[in-house]
Computed example of a mutant assay.
Amino acid sequence: MRKKITGCVLVLLILASCKTDKKKDDSDTWRTKKAAVANATHNQLLEVEKEEGWELLFDGKTMNGWHLYNDPDAESVWEVVDGSLHSNANDESLTAGDLVTDNAYENYELTLEWKISGNGNSGVFINVQELPEVPTAWQSGPEYQILGADHMDYDVPEKRPGCLYVFLPQQNNVEVKQGEWNKTRIKQVDGKIEFYLNGVLTAEKDFSLPEWKEGIAGTHFSKYPEFGKTTEGKVALQYWYFETWFRNIKIREL
């Protein structure tokens, strides 16, 4: 009888040990994944990215490489907060405006991540011509649309996130991850652009073709002689009265 009881106790101990080990393994796996997410490195280049020619457009600490459009010395709404470029929509004493790169680009691939308030409106302008007679970046640069999911234009086809603003609806449907980081990729080669949102192709256009100029003529942008005129220029981040965050801004020339 004692042998039988001892055997049962041994079996129970083994089963308990297995459950403990399984729980430990699951816990370790969970902690590892959680730690990886929590300790993800931002605003830095991997060695493979350096080999591929990528450059950081934002170092996560300073505004180096950027300035307020047509007003580089202003105390602007743009600031660095927790490793992101942040548009401060709460201090009306600051100078509002779009943030533009110091350098111009022609054939390139640009990637970045962004978050925006629920009803926020922003964008990435490309081929921007920074000229005294052109008061805002959007009067020369076509726009990759950024929009919060609660914005009144969110379901307007030609104003959806990732669109070539006003000109094209989303080529493939994709939603914004509200309150989370979204990923944008913009590629331009010889005037041909591709827009991506969260890995999905959302727009394609050839700015070198006559139909592009014809398309401009049918919109309010026709009032602005510099709009969409070139396939080379600066990159700008739009400020439009709501909080927006940008990080991991990288570019490589093609």
Rank of each mutant, 00 (worst) to 15 (best):
residue 96 A to L: 00
residue 244 T to N: 07
residue 164 L to H: 07
residue 207 F to S: 04
residue 223 K to W: 08
residue 21 D to E: 13
residue 210 P to Q: 11
residue 229 K to R: 15
residue 169 P to Q: 07
residue 203 A to R: 02
residue 153 D to K: 04
residue 87 S to E: 00
residue 28 D to C: 04
residue 205 K to Y: 14
residue 80 V to W: 00
residue 1 M to E: 10
residue 69 Y to R: 09
residue 182 N to F: 08
residue 135 P to N: 05
residue 48 V to A: 12
residue 27 S to C: 10
residue 225 P to I: 11
residue 186 I to Q: 00
residue 138 W to L: 00
residue 215 G to C: 03
residue 57 L to C: 05
residue 212 W to Y: 09
residue 69 Y to N: 04
residue 196 Y to I: 04
residue 162 G to F: 03
residue 213 K to I: 09
residue 33 K to H: 12
residue 204 E to D: 06
residue 152 M to H: 15
residue 42 H to R: 12
residue 97 G to T: 06
residue 89 A to N: 13
residue 11 V to L: 13
residue 39 N to S: 15
residue 69 Y to E: 08
residue 218 G to N: 14
residue 169 P to R: 07
residue 54 W to D: 08
residue 125 F to Q: 10
residue 18 C to T: 13
residue 234 K to V: 04
residue 131 L to C: 03
residue 13 L to C: 13
residue 182 N to D: 08
residue 111 T to S: 10
residue 11 V to E: 01
residue 166 V to I: 14
residue 170 Q to T: 10
residue 228 G to W: 01
residue 104 A to M: 05
residue 249 I to E: 00
residue 212 W to E: 07
residue 105 Y to D: 01
residue 187 K to L: 06
residue 79 E to M: 11
residue 126 I to H: 06
residue 172 N to H: 15
residue 128 V to D: 05
residue 189 V to L: 07
residue 174 V to I: 11
residue 245 W to S: 05
residue 235 V to E: 00
residue 89 A to W: 00
residue 107 N to I: 11
residue 198 N to E: 05
residue 183 K to H: 14
residue 70 N to V: 06
residue 39 N to V: 10
residue 173 N to I: 11
residue 32 T to K: 14
residue 110 L to I: 11
residue 21 D to R: 12
residue 237 L to P: 09
residue 125 F to N: 10
residue 163 C to E: 11
residue 28 D to M: 13
residue 237 L to Q: 02
residue 228 G to E: 00
residue 1 M to V: 14
residue 127 N to D: 13
residue 180 E to R: 07
residue 105 Y to C: 02
residue 205 K to E: 13
residue 91 D to S: 10
residue 192 K to P: 01
residue 49 E to H: 07
residue 40 A to N: 07
residue 1 M to N: 12
residue 174 V to E: 07
residue 208 S to Q: 12
residue 99 L to K: 02
residue 112 L to H: 03
residue 140 S to P: 09
residue 91 D to H: 08
residue 161 P to Q: 07
residue 66 W to H: 09
residue 76 S to V: 03
residue 104 A to E: 14
residue 209 L to H: 09
residue 4 K to D: 08
residue 205 K to M: 14
residue 93 S to R: 13
residue 7 G to A: 15
residue 154 Y to D: 05
residue 216 I to T: 09
residue 228 G to C: 07
residue 86 H to C: 00
residue 212 W to M: 04
residue 14 I to A: 13
residue 254 L to N: 08
residue 158 E to R: 11
residue 5 I to H: 02
residue 115 K to V: 11
residue 58 F to H: 01
residue 177 K to L: 11
residue 45 L to W: 04
residue 225 P to H: 05
residue 102 D to H: 04
residue 59 D to Y: 02
residue 175 E to D: 15
residue 119 N to K: 15
residue 180 E to P: 06
residue 104 A to F: 01
residue 34 K to C: 01
residue 193 I to Y: 03
residue 174 V to S: 04
residue 83 G to D: 02
residue 203 A to W: 01
residue 212 W to S: 08
residue 65 G to K: 04
residue 2 R to T: 13
residue 199 G to Y: 09
residue 88 N to I: 09
residue 71 D to R: 12
residue 68 L to G: 00
residue 60 G to W: 00
residue 11 V to A: 12
